[in-house]
Design a binder for these strands. Structure first.
Lengths: 140, 140
DNA sequence: ATTAATGCAAAATCTTTGCACTTTC
DNA sequence: GAAAGTGCAAAGATTTTGCATTAAT
């Protein structure tokens, strides 16, 4: 007898986010969300997808990263002028940025305690607090 | 009798930084350092300089901003993918970023107390900590 | 004179867009 | 079949570069 379609976490995730589970989105979602949290640039993810045999154009990777971000599945991290990083960890947390290699690494929210946060100016609300701890390699 | 050349803070600043006090650099330095701290993009500063009658090319503005940064007179702030901001305040401090207008505003270092800073991974040292408090306008 | 800085236009990046074609619902 | 998504190549935007000219030491 017929069995239901194989379990596809990627497709389910996409549906929940209100995005059509197209072949390209499923492939990218698998790369991004199947294992642990990831930090990628569009170029990196595109290379990885192609390497995996997924046929996706770079434009679609950009579109998809923005759609995922807008859908709340990812967030954008700004650490490098002229190159956007996207992070699959959407919970409150911060980052180490290895200036030499371009690698990003999460810092759990709790491990940086913010005291005495200034209140936002009138008419505005804090939408997000980004903390980047920039690291350089110590010679020797 | 002959008097010494008029006092030119900009030229002195440049000399101290090891940069030749050319007409363009003096003009930009005056705009940047004469009054209070400033946050500018290359495009903004270029427009401002031209508006002031200074003849400077955009390429030179870019060069100059990077030279000033390398000389320790400014620092670069990353808040917007695809647009670099430069800040004349080089002391330790952080930023409010008004997402709607693109304006940057300093937050004094003391007004954010960092507790429990995680130690940098072996072989690396913290080169800088950037904190961006992103603000959005509250409707109403 | 020597060395460094500038301008310009061209190139390099990264990212977005327009539109015909394809896929999903 | 209607609506949404994709690919491609072209266009945008920002930033960098090469090299002849100009300016500072």
């Amino acid at each position: 007898m017929l069995r239901s379609r194989p379990y596809t976490r990627a497709a389910d995730l996409l549906k929940l986010a209100g995005l059509r589970p197209t072949r390209q989105r499923r492939a990218l979602a698998r790369l991004l969300f199947d294992d642990e949290n990831r930090h990628v640039t569009a170029e990196q993810l595109h290379a990885e997808a192609r390497h995996d045999g997924a046929e996706v154009s770079l434009a679609t990777v950009y579109n998809t990263l923005h759609q995922f971000t807008q859908a709340g599945l990812m967030r954008e991290v700004m650490v490098d002028p002229g190159r956007s990083y996207f992070d699959t960890n959407t919970s409150e947390h911060h980052h180490f940025y290895y200036e030499d290699t371009g690698r990003l690494q999460d810092i759990p929210e709790e491990s940086i305690a913010l005291a005495a946060l200034p209140k936002p100016p009138l008419g505005t609300a804090i939408s997000r607090i980004d903390i980047i701890v920039r690291l350089s390699e110590t010679p020797r």
